[in-house]
Amino acid sequence: MAKTLEHYQHLHQIPELGFVEFKTSAYIADALEVAGFKVTRNINDTTGIVAELDSGKPGPVMALRADMDALGHIIDGQLVARHTCGHDGHSSVVLATAQEVINEGVVKKGRLKILFQPAEELGTGALAMVEGGVLDDVDILLGFHVRPLEECPMGKAVPAMFYSAGATVEAVITGLPAHAARPHLGINALDAAVAAVQAVNTIHLAPNLTWSVKATRMLCDAGVTNSVPSEARVCWDLRSQFNEPMDTLKAKVINAITHSVAAMGATAEITVMKEMHAAIIDDDVTALIAESIVEVLGAEGLTEPQFTPGCEDFFHYPRQRPQVKTGFWGLGANLTPGLHHPEMRFDLDALEIGVQVFKSCVKKVLG
């Protein structure tokens, strides 16, 4: 546990945003090299890292993945990076697992790869790693995430976390400026933006599907209060438990925005800014993880698989490389008051549980 906590305490003090995890990446890569791994830094010209341990004997290639980036919060009017999604904990667990695996000679066949990924919060870090070729030779890939208290308490773990698909749609709405005393000479972008929000709110998918869409940002300012604004920027957050309804939802949102603003004479430039896929999880890998959880926590520590409306860019990996069998589990850690909350905290004793579960998985596959 000492090494895991040491890693966590260091990484927690140096939070860095996506694709600029320079200190974080250097610390992890240095530790992996000292442990004896073959380390490749700057994957695809990013801060991504791949470490490899080759047994020298035939066998499968197994990979463990951790994310490294922190979140940006506006606190006292300033943008600050904070580890409020537990990625420092994830990196600490996977780094300590790697060190213990090599020190204990766990890998007796095949190869073990350790992936430290940037920019999970941006939704593009996994894609950058895939483009860097890190999965081209991988057979099995495992990831995990600490869970909020209401989902999974300390002393329990979830063998499969079924994340939802998510997307961010932005519309830059353009009207025509005018003096507020002569509104008939302009096209009010703010009115058009409000109409677009209302139009999107009328969208319906089948009631048996789990989905949501809501406006989450609106920016519009003519600079003065007596002018008709000519531009507005609106963002919507889209969620769907499955990938296919997300395609339908995106199309309906784009259609609603386009036609509602056009009815007022405005135009909309629409961009899907960020997109993450719903979970693709292999049943056999889930069974492997479940066995390891029971081995570490006992049968009482194993929960049923869970669905969550949250998103995880981990699932770009199986979407881009469907030949890779993937598993993603959840670690109970008494995490409160919630993920992405500026004051998020969790029980650090959970980190050692994470190490032991991962070690057990590696032993079962490569031991």
Results as ranks from 00 to 15, higher is better:
Val261Asp: 04
Gly18Tyr: 03
His341Val: 09
Val107Ser: 03
Asp283Trp: 15
Thr271Phe: 14
Ser230His: 15
Phe37Met: 05
Pro322Asp: 04
Lys363His: 14
Asp45Pro: 08
Asp76His: 11
Lys113Thr: 08
Lys38Leu: 10
Ala126Glu: 06
Leu95Tyr: 05
Pro118Phe: 12
Ala256Asn: 07
Leu209Cys: 02
Ile293Arg: 01
Gly59Ser: 04
Lys359Met: 09
Thr308Ser: 14
Glu120Trp: 11
Gly155Gln: 05
Gly133Trp: 15
Leu351Gln: 00
Asp221His: 12
Ile173His: 03
Glu244Ser: 08
Pro60Tyr: 08
Ala66Tyr: 01
Ile270Pro: 08
Val253Ser: 03
Glu275Ser: 14
Lys250His: 07
Leu339Trp: 02
Ser260Thr: 12
Ala350Gln: 00
Thr84Asp: 00
Ser227Lys: 10
Pro309Asp: 05
Glu304Val: 14
Phe19Ile: 05
Gln356Tyr: 02
Gln198Val: 10
Gln323Gly: 10
Lys113Ala: 03
Ile254Gly: 02
Met273Tyr: 14
Leu149Arg: 13
Gly36His: 15
Arg65Asp: 01
Leu351Met: 09
Met154Glu: 04
Ile114Gln: 06
Leu5Trp: 08
Val197Phe: 05
Leu135Met: 13
Ala26Gly: 06
Gly298His: 13
Gln306Leu: 14
Pro337Leu: 09
Ala180Gln: 02
Ala26Gln: 13
Val294His: 04
Ile43Gly: 00
Val285Ala: 09
Glu120Met: 01
Thr225Ser: 08
Leu127Ser: 06
Met344Glu: 01
Thr271Ser: 15
Met161Thr: 01
Leu339Gln: 03
Cys311Gly: 04
Ile28Gln: 02
Val169Lys: 03
Thr40Arg: 14
Ser91Gln: 06
Lys214Cys: 10
Glu291His: 08
Phe307Ala: 07
Gly36Cys: 09
